[in-house]
Design a binder for these strands. Structure first.
Length: 330
DNA sequence: GGGACATTCAACTATACGCT
DNA sequence: AGCGTATAGTTGAATGTCCC
């Protein structure tokens, strides 16, 4: 019946096809019924970033659960292991008042993801801003002492373990800062090329085994050139840069090539490009910025990666819209 | 089977910098 | 000076795995 559950879930979450047994099992238990209920009401399961509406719904769900049970803080509720003496009581209250159900009320997403979102929002160790040099040094020292025990280190540094783990992977090796040399750039291009080729070959293999038709054209879809690339692998190949630097550099290389070196946002044409972009976004009539399909918006500007257009929109917003932080997308 | 945790790719935000 | 681009920094989503 695992297969049945998988098939049923696929209706709501296409990627269920490839998910691990464990994920399927837990979603079948907790989410399938909810998904069906949402469907009855004509609500689709959502992915990607939480909208403002969802975030405030989550906030509300937490507040209501706290007042229902008398637990005095969201941190106690969501990180009960930090309060050993209250832990048992909290556990009991959670079961008694159906924590899982209450938490996910009105949010059409898998329970697990709602839970993680809540833990991010309500962790006092999160949102601590920039790391100082002292902190970076401290992190390196602790890692040398305790290895990748991020949980332990996060307690000592009052930062969330995710933040710590990520920061460490960024600073673990001496990253070459500043402009890219010709040689480095070439190395990057080669690495990306190799990775994409490998990926296509693999797809081709599965494609051929399921079909007789072997005549496929050599061009590849644009998305394959920048979406879901294994950056960690590329980082190792390049050797001198952090994966994010690689990614950013690759996108600019790609953009320049796609547009044959033309500068898109300069002069009169640049102005027109901006106007097109704004018009296109307006026509979408979406409520939340998270609902924008940037791949669709791309051709308002030219043949560019979607992240480029996104970045442009951000820049435009920040420099032209007063009090943009306090405004909604619509 | 719930929950904690590490890891990885994506997105958002801020700043540096150079050209016109 | 103003603008566009490159680069740096932080947070978000998603998922495999391990443990109790």
């Amino acid at each position: 019946d695992l297969d049945v559950a998988r098939r049923e879930l696929e209706e709501f979450i296409p990627r269920a096809r490839t998910m691990s047994e464990h994920s399927i099992r837990s979603m079948a238990g907790r989410d399938l019924a909810r998904f069906k209920e949402f469907k009855k009401q004509g609500v689709a399961v959502k992915f990607g970033r939480f909208s403002q509406k969802e975030n405030s719904q989550l906030q509300k769900n937490i507040e209501e659960f706290l007042s229902l049970t008398g637990i005095d803080s969201a941190e106690k509720l969501l990180f009960s292991y930090r309060y050993p003496e209250d832990r048992e009581t909290i556990q009991r209250l959670k079961a008694e008042y159906q924590f899982c159900e209450k938490l996910s009320e009105g949010i059409p997403r898998p329970w697990r993801l709602i839970y993680y979102r809540a833990r991010k929002i309500f962790d006092p160790n999160n949102y601590k801003g920039k790391y100082s040099n002292e902190e970076k040094e401290m992190l390196k020292r602790y890692q040398a002492m305790y290895g990748n025990d991020w949980k332990k280190i996060s307690v000592m540094m009052s930062r969330s373990n995710i933040s710590i783990a990520r920061k460490y992977s960024e600073i673990k090796s001496d990253i070459n800062h500043g402009a890219w040399s010709e040689e480095e750039t070439q190395k990057l291009i080669n690495a990306v090329e190799e990775v994409i080729k490998k990926r296509i070959e693999k797809e081709e293999a599965t494609f051929l085994s399921s079909s007789e038709d072997s005549s496929r054209d050599l061009s590849i879809e644009r998305e394959k050139l920048y979406q879901n690339l294994p950056w960690a692998e590329i980082e190792t190949q390049v050797g001198t840069r952090y994966w994010k630097q690689c990614k950013q550099k690759w996108l600019t290389v790609l953009r320049t090539r796609m547009n044959k070196g033309k500068r898109l946002y300069r002069g009169k044409e640049g102005l027109q490009a901006k106007i097109n972009l704004i018009k296109r976004l307006y026509e979408l009539k979406v409520e939340d910025a998270n609902d924008v399909n940037w791949a669709e918006v791309c051709n308002a500007v030219g043949d560019v990666p979607s992240s480029y257009v996104q970045a442009k929109f951000y820049k435009l917003k920040v420099s032209c819209v007063p009090f943009w932080q306090k405004k909604t997308f619509s």
